[in-house]
């Protein structure tokens, strides 16, 4: 019999209108208990209005070794940013 409770990642929505943000992790035997433990552990001081728990094993992460091929190509595409474009003075609402 295993007594090892799996690891869960906890995401908290601090108030309506904001997205859930990673708060930390915890151990629990199943999703229901993970949710309750997350409530007691990460929202004791009214930090949240909504919680997600996700099995840590279900997270697929990009590898730091692939950082360059993953993220560098986005670095030289300045035309994706509004500041790339020159607009004459006095033109408004643009």
């Amino acid at each position: 019999m295993t007594t090892h409770w799996p690891l869960w990642e906890v995401f908290v929505r601090s108030r309506r209108g904001l997205s859930h943000t990673h708060a930390g992790s915890l151990h629990a035997p199943d999703a229901e208990m993970a949710l309750r433990n997350a409530r007691d552990l990460y929202t004791r001081r009214g930090e949240g209005v909504s919680l997600w728990v996700v099995p840590a094993a279900a997270v697929t992460a990009s590898s730091p070794d692939e950082k360059d091929p993953f993220f560098e190509p986005a670095g030289d595409k300045a035309y994706r940013h509004p500041t790339f474009y020159a607009i004459p003075d006095g033109v408004k609402h643009l």
Partner: peptide, 15 residues
């Protein structure tokens, strides 16, 4: 507490 943690794991496996 071992029997409690075991019970919760066993219950999760059954579910």
């Amino acid at each position: 507490g071992a029997w409690v943690r075991e019970a919760a794991s066993a219950h999760a496996a059954k579910r």
